[in-house]
């Protein structure tokens, strides 16, 4: 483990260079009638999702240093290397497993909004609790990027995060950022683009620590689900939610929406 790798120069030199950025990123504000990819910003409350959103779209979503500042979905757009992206800023959530009302908007969009890439914005100063949500997102989708935000604050507290190790462990790109200062955003964009167009395949980490009784129940149900819907990439998650009695997922299964939702292998080009 070599933590000094974490947030140090070679890549960051690019972040400061305006030419690099200007050539690649075009902020589109709210003008997103058509797009190639939908990117969702998920994460715990107060980790800087809206700050990332503002930096990429040029919009001015309200930000504030308290959890729960964003309570509604916001959409904006940007263009990167001739591809158009719709970016969706979501309210913060602690978990996708609960049914609380204040987290409903984010949960519904992540589960049923069909984002092409899900960017999990995590607070580098308290990674462990942020991984709680990140791991849940990775159970759902295999197109995710972890944005390790607030890396400047972590640095001030003497915390270093080995992003390569973390990326290997999670199986998705991990990009250290300081969104407020604009650090790391070019790398974030590059990672999002690679995951979006399939140049980078993720092999997301899957949970393994459940108690044996739960695991065997899961295995049984997963086998059944997979034999019916062989294309479903996240049968384990569906099984988990069905065991948990999630009516939303059960309904989606019944109506056939779920199968439809996840069997899509190609990203829709310029969908409406």
């Amino acid at each position: 483990m070599n933590p000094s790798l974490a947030s140090t120069p070679p890549r960051q030199a690019c972040a400061e260079c305006d030419v690099y950025r200007a050539a690649q990123l075009k902020k589109l504000g709210v003008n997103v009638e058509t797009w190639d990819f939908v990117v969702a910003l998920a994460g715990n409350p107060n980790t800087g999702k809206s700050t990332v959103f503002n930096a990429l779209t040029g919009l001015r979503q309200h930000t504030g240093n308290w959890p729960g500042k964003t309570v509604a979905r916001a959409e904006g757009g940007f263009e990167y290397r001739d591809q158009r992206y719709k970016l969706v800023d979501l309210p913060g959530t602690y978990s996708l497993l609960s049914t609380s009302l204040d987290e409903q908007i984010a949960r519904d969009f992540l589960l049923f909004g069909r984002p092409d890439v899900c960017v999990v914005v995590a607070d580098a100063t308290r990674l462990e609790r942020n991984l709680n949500l990140a791991l849940q997102v990775l159970e759902i989708t295999d197109r995710a990027v972890l944005c390790l935000n607030l890396i400047d604050e972590a640095g001030r507290r003497g915390i270093t995060v080995d992003d390569r190790q973390l990326s290997r462990d999670l199986g998705v790109p991990v990009v250290p950022c300081a969104a407020r200062q604009g650090q790391g955003l070019p790398e974030l964009l590059a990672a999002v683009a690679e995951v979006a167009d399939g140049r980078r395949l993720c092999r997301p980490h899957r949970l393994s620590q459940e108690p044996p009784a739960l695991q065997s129940a899961l295995r049984e149900l997963v086998a059944q689900i997979e034999s019916t819907y062989p294309d479903l990439p996240n049968a384990r998650w569906v099984a988990l939610r069905l065991l948990g009695g999630d009516e939303h997922v059960a309904q989606a299964l019944r109506s056939g929406e779920l199968a439809e939702l996840y069997t899509r292998t190609q990203p829709p080009a310029a969908s409406k």
């Binding site: 462990e128 609790r129 991984l131 709680n132 949970l207 620590q209 108690p211 739960l214 988990l240």
Partner: peptide, 9 residues
């Protein structure tokens, strides 16, 4: 489940 996730995290 939450316990398992936190253990992993």
């Amino acid at each position: 489940v939450v316990e398992a996730i936190y253990a992993d995290a």
